[in-house]
Design a binder for these strands. Structure first.
Lengths: 404, 404
DNA sequence: ACGAATAAGTTCATCGGATATACAAACTAG
DNA sequence: CTAGTTTGTATATCCGATGAACTTATTCGT
């Protein structure tokens, strides 16, 4: 009933701790307390107490002072702490399942990825296996004195982020399950589920600190069997009412087009999905992404036709999205990553003719910087982001237990 | 360079003043200080000082105590203050120009609307005339001791909200002008320009206090010569990178469809724009909305065909938007307002077949509650919203000058 | 009619947290 | 080795939320 919380005394600390933590973590190079004071406008005294709290919490560390150029006392450089607080990214997808552990510096601390065909696999057993892998990684991490801040599971389907229910994952053949309890993770470990494409999009933000400061608004389009998208606005994922935004694959490209397995017809997926792409050049659906890219990059008619059809359809769907959202940056992931140079001309042609604001707001099309299992990174990073955005609970206890 | 501001001491007051002001203004019935304390979680003491400040600023007023049901001291009901602080909405559209003055209760305090054909009118002269009307209204308001918080101008075109430049308004025949200076409004009066459909969307939120508390997320689609849309998420307009979001009229319905004056082809506007609707039933483009609705409501083949084509195209474009945004409420405005019962079946049919999440998230289609010159209301309301969201500057001075 | 009960609103001492100012620390330049 | 410069810390102050006690205005029971 009560939407907005009041600002209490402690809110100031909460916000300013988060502010300082974010600045240090997003910075290109280590910052000093004095730098932070200058950037934020707070006094050096205030910044000092905040930094001290964050260092004690294991979120930041002081590096060895480096020699300065000019006169004056040398600054103590601050950086995100390595291997203190870590986040878990989990994923089950059609051709692999895996766990990735990342620390606040963005480094992958530990990882298990098993490549196998999981189409039609039993959800309960598969998730139990993933849970076992995860527990192994947690044990290893804790024995090395790291604190695991939470786990975020990525699934290729419609996930109700509120209730944690997977409505349907067509390519896995799963539907109507609650995946988190099936993992059997330790009690008290904060967990969440999300859509694979959306988490992959967030990985793009984290994968490149420069991106976090500049182009924090973009559309991420991931091509696989399905075509998923995610809308990132000012560094925040836009999930929509239920977390089901970004279904670009089922945007109508041609109302009299071929039937789609979603029940409608003329969906983008029928022109630019992986199935259509591999069919067009006579490959199998399980072909690795780089092999497909190579084949589609060849200079024969079949490849050219497949890429052209896909690019034009993609461009048209994107034009719709850009007309609606006024976003001027698109990152292409999944099987599209390696095809960007081939796809770009057809996409741009559609955007230029169909986007009303095109003359004043050109759209940039780029391959997604984080490619390998981006959703694993995205999940882990989402967990860590929650820590950085609310460092308060981590400043209190020294214990290794996870704060609620 | 520095994105986030730190939370200073005063930020608490700022936020909590805004919180209390919003609660009172959005409430269905008057609230007491004690109610507010219970709702927000702040102590009665804190709420009291906040309320006193807001009353002194002319944002809230105490009503006469009413008899209570049970025992105890009767509460002092609080309500938004009438005719103290007011906001101006301005608009130039193809068939009228006008000014509307609204106070914090949402009441229209003053208004001038001149119906005339402004297609191809000279921008400078037209805006100068609108400015004169506005100055008259300001003078009247100030002589009645009201403080004008600002003016917001609505135009039917691509407005760069950052720079205040109107890129192009095809139906007016205006392009590349900076409209605000041409109004010649008093120095120091905060002014802004925005797109007409977007401001109309915000009017829907304000027009119905109940809406502000419940369905604060919706897509507003306004049909006129062009088809515009606005995305409202949790009570905030989503403008996109440049404020050019919501160009639903140029979403592609059929890639092999008829040419559109935007240069592309198969745009929604070519199926559901007012020009096509009036053509379909042999009326003139300047026909009033209710006459058109009557004619299209008739039971003959021409009317049925026009409505069917428009509804199906609208539904398809909306399905794209819903797949992308996961929004489950659509408000139809402009010429569509009176046609909702006729349009709904075709729209729903498209949504049900084309929206992937349709089985779990049915979409509601309703006529927009605020119909008459909604953008005028939207502009005024946007100005007032800025006051409510940041009441601090109004608490300081008692002077009638507008705070910067 | 009168006191007990009850709820609304206010007063005041307290506390958390940012701020300004002064100061100590660590370095460079001449 | 001293003056100058910048970083980081200590201390008094101020702002604003809080909790507890208190005042005010009403209903209810007798």
């Amino acid at each position: 009933m009560n939407s907005a919380e009041p600002a209490r005394q402690g809110s100031l600390r909460e916000r300013n701790l988060a502010l300082v933590a974010r600045q240090v973590i997003d910075a290109a190079e280590p910052l000093s307390r004095a730098d932070l004071a200058a950037m934020t406008g707070m006094t050096r005294a205030t910044v000092s107490t905040l930094v001290d709290q964050l260092v004690a919490a294991g979120i930041l560390t002081e590096l060895a002072p480096v020699a300065r150029s000019g006169p004056g006392r040398p600054a103590v450089p601050l950086a995100p702490a390595a291997r203190t607080i870590v986040g878990l990214g989990l994923e089950v997808n059609v051709d692999y399942l895996g766990v990735r552990l990342i620390d606040l510096t963005g480094a992958v601390v530990d990882e298990i990825v098993l490549a196998e065909n999981l189409r039609g696999s039993p959800a309960t057993a598969t998730l139990a296996r993933l849970g076992q892998l995860t527990r192994d990684i947690i044990t290893r991490a804790e024995s090395r004195d790291m604190r695991v801040a939470g786990a975020h599971l990525a699934l290729p389907g419609l996930v109700d982020t509120g209730s944690g229910v997977l409505r349907i994952a067509p390519n896995l053949g799963w539907s109507g399950i609650e995946p988190l309890p099936l993992l059997g993770l330790p009690d008290g470990l904060p967990t969440a589920v999300g859509n694979e494409a959306k988490l992959a999009a967030l990985a793009q933000l984290w994968g490149c600190p420069a991106a976090r400061r500049t182009s924090r608004t973009f559309l991420y389009v991931s091509g696989d069997v399905g075509v998923g998208a995610a809308i990132v606005i000012d560094g925040e994922l836009f999930g929509g009412g239920h977390g089901w935004s970004g279904e670009l694959g089922h945007v109508t490209v041609d109302p009299s087009g071929p039937a789609c397995r979603c029940g409608a017809n003329g969906c983008l997926e029928r022109y630019a999905g992986k199935e259509v792409l591999v069919d067009g050049v006579g490959l199998d659906i399980d072909v690795p992404g780089d092999v497909l890219a190579d084949r589609l990059g060849a200079e024969d008619d079949a490849a050219r036709a497949a890429v052209d059809t896909a690019g034009t359809a993609l461009g048209q769907a994107m034009a719709n999205a850009v007309n609606l959202l006024d976003i001027d940056r698109v990152l292409l992931g999944g099987v599209y990553t390696g095809l960007v140079p081939r796809l770009r001309p057809a996409i741009i042609a559609q955007l230029e003719s169909r986007v009303l604001a095109a003359p004043w707001a050109p759209v940039w099309i780029d391959p997604a910087p984080v490619a390998d299992h981006a959703a694993l990174t995205g999940g882990a990073v989402t967990v860590l982001r929650a820590v950085v955005d609310n460092p308060m609970p981590w400043t209190a206890r020294q214990a290794r237990t996870v704060p609620v």
